[in-house]
């Protein structure tokens, strides 16, 4: 690895602005993720965490700002040009987002078959292997996603995200809606899978236990900006009132709930 490659961050977002109509969601959002690092974004519901991830994927287009993935500026690329970049990224969606028209194993193998043109027999073997990796038996592969519990769906989503062995993985609220034990199982799986692949990860969560487990570094999003970031060991002594209020889940503090306003 050259000196240059070492210092190029895997993801570099600089001064991102994104609004929907009159509503400013991201206003001056900046965040850098180094190669091999695991960064977790925390922040209240509706603050724009998912919007930030979708901007990196090109699903949403910010009005302003620069996003570099492995040194390549992606905001100016066409969908076609973005394809090789997207091939490096896997994502676990907030609601798993499994395709309900096809069986579980085809969900897991989707990127291999459609994206990489792998033949079905080979792709199925890999899919079964990935399902085993997340603790699901091969017979689950033949079920329809609608037949799975929420926790199983998250696992299948995880298997799908890691199936093509991406360099970068996004986890959007991997533990939301799961019981504490299943949450911990998913957290462990994430940590293991990331170690296996040596991947760079960017995750979103409200769940501090999850953040502490999967993060190297934690960043807090509030009113469209990252207002604090630091090593996870520093989170309890951040000296930032907003962070303190969030991690202790207090109703009183500098963060006004949006609900009270209108």
């Amino acid at each position: 690895m050259t000196e240059q490659a070492k210092i190029t961050p895997m993801i570099q977002m600089d001064n991102i602005h994104k609004s929907f109509g009159p509503k400013h969601v991201l206003s001056g959002f900046s965040l850098t993720v180094q190669k091999g690092e695991s960064v977790v974004i925390i922040g209240g519901s509706g603050t724009g965490k998912s919007v930030a991830l979708k901007s990196i994927l090109g699903i949403l287009k910010p009005e302003q700002g620069s996003i570099k993935v492995d040194g390549t500026e992606i905001t100016t690329l066409s969908n076609r040009e973005r394809k090789p970049i997207l091939a490096k990224i896997g994502m676990l969606f907030q609601g798993a987002a499994l395709f309900d028209s096809i069986p579980v194993w085809q969900n897991v193998a989707f990127g291999l078959i459609q994206g990489k043109g792998m033949n079905k027999v080979e792709a199925r073997e890999i899919a079964i292997e990935k399902l085993r990796r997340v603790g699901l038996t091969p017979d689950v592969g033949d079920l329809s996603p609608a037949e799975l519990s929420g926790g199983m769906q998250k696992r299948v989503g995880l298997a799908r995200a890691i199936a093509s062995e991406p360099e970068i993985i996004f986890f959007d609220e991997p533990t939301t809606g799961l019981d504490p034990i299943m949450s911990d199982v998913i957290n462990d799986l994430i940590v293991e899978c990331v170690q296996d692949l040596g991947a760079t990860t960017l995750s979103i969560t409200h769940d501090m236990a999850s953040a502490r487990k999967i993060a190297d570094r934690i960043a807090m999003l509030y009113q469209g900006k990252i207002i604090w970031e630091g090593d996870k060991s520093q989170i309890d002594a951040s000296g930032n009132d907003y962070v303190d209020q969030f991690i202790h889940g207090r109703a009183q503090g500098p963060i006004e709930m949006q609900l009270l306003k209108p």
Binding site: K54, L57, G58, I59, K83, L86, A87, I89, G90, M91, F93, Q94, G95, A97, L98, F99, D100, F110, G111, Q114, G115, K116, R160, S164
Partner: peptide
């Protein structure tokens, strides 16, 4: 598929 983010998921799977 849109509201359950399946359409976004297609994009992340190079489709």
């Amino acid at each position: 598929m849109r509201v359950t983010e399946q359409i976004d998921a297609l994009t992340t799977l190079s489709t």
